[in-house]
Design a protein around this nucleic acid. Structure first.
Lengths: 212, 212
DNA sequence: TGGTCTATTAACTAACCAGTTGGTTAACTG
DNA sequence: CAGTTAACCAACTGGTTAGTTAATAGACCA
């Protein structure tokens, strides 16, 4: 049946993708091995080249998958209705949810930042930039509305994103070492969302009279 | 003369250290090559093993060098005189200065965080933890004195450090690509110090009446 | 002067890696 | 049923890698 073959093909594709995401997340692009990926996916190494063309193309596919999802949601929030503080809250909740749903994303992204993203093709780079574009629009809206103070959108973005990436990279490590269980329970994530929302609001707020 | 030989030995040691710092910073531990390090240091590869014993020992030496410097200064600030907000400001200025002086540090640290620091021996790990210990003492002092609100020291530390690491990792990338020159001029760094000091203060401040 | 130690080297090894090749199997099609 | 093709695989290749070894040059000292 065509179904059987087709399904098998898609299953192989998905298994390779999942195995590669895990491998690259744990070891990085250079240290990640295609033999190990193939073994994890229970697939012959040649299938990896059959389905994805090259180690790099497979890696980029993993990056693009997550950029596509985040970029689309960020644009929807920025272009949708609501006040700027409200949009900022929703943006933070969204990116944290997406990171929690793709545990391989934060380590890969951190390594890309550390390396200067030399593996990004122009399209992937543009996709990543469009995420910042949405955030910038939210921040500028807040300034226009008078609810946000004077701020540098890029610097603000670069202050909010890194703690999120490192929080999840650390969580994965702690989970792997089994130092503490249940650290990624929903309550834990909700508390972190609240922390980052509070942090972001304090960061963009207008300066004003302070207590004491 | 013994001087000539001794100096030559120390010079080789230093050249290998510098070349390795650069190599590991650009490519990471796994992708970093000892042959490339030796070539950069203008030294035979065997000298690397003579002076440092192994690739990993060389790598750890680079990590310890920076942890030693930062840990010592952090302790001095935490244990010295001054109010908590003042200490927090000095801590941020210090870590940013140390990162600027060791441009290889942020990328290496980011990759370690992404990998879960599997290459840390217990001593190095303790050295790194003692940095957090000093920061925690500053934050607790602020709570005791009533100038800081209710906060989680670890979460606060993990909100302040990542933007600093990523700021410098990005700077190095931009400098390499020569997209913009002079980005790391003193003024640029001073502005970033001010931004992070403002960010940290807003983060730890007591909640109070806000401007509407 | 002859022995000893530090610093250095070229040449080697054994393992590993990304990617290729040449061929097989099995579902579908006319 | 015969031909086509998507999906799959074992085995190989060429190149790279961390780490070793055996030998040597020169400083120091007795």
């Amino acid at each position: 049946m065509s179904r059987t073959r087709k399904r098998s093909s898609e299953a192989s594709h998905a298994a390779i993708f999942a195995a590669a995401a895990e491998e690259f997340s744990e070891r990085g692009f250079e240290a990640g091995g295609v033999d190990r990926i193939a073994a994890k996916a229970r697939v012959n190494k040649a299938m990896l080249y059959y389905h994805f063309g090259s180690k790099r193309a497979l890696y980029i596919e993993i990056l693009r998958d997550m950029f596509r999802a985040v970029s689309q949601k960020a644009r929807a929030i920025a272009d949708g209705p609501g006040t700027a503080p409200d949009k900022l809250d929703r943006w933070i909740a969204t990116i944290i949810q997406e990171a929690a749903a793709r545990p391989w994303f934060p380590p890969i992204m951190l390594r890309e930042l550390a390396s200067g993203a030399p593996r990004f093709d122009p399209d992937t780079f543009a996709l990543m930039n469009s995420i910042f574009g949405a955030v910038r629009d939210i921040l500028l809206q807040g300034q226009r509305e008078g609810s946000f103070g004077d701020l540098d959108p890029l610097l603000t973005h670069l202050t909010i994103m890194p703690p999120i990436l490192i929080f999840f990279a650390r969580q994965r490590v702690l989970a792997t070492k089994e130092i503490a269980t249940g650290l990624l329970e929903p309550r834990q994530i909700d508390a972190f969302v609240a922390h980052m929302q509070r942090t972001a609001l304090r960061l963009v707020q207008k300066e004003g009279p302070r207590p004491s």
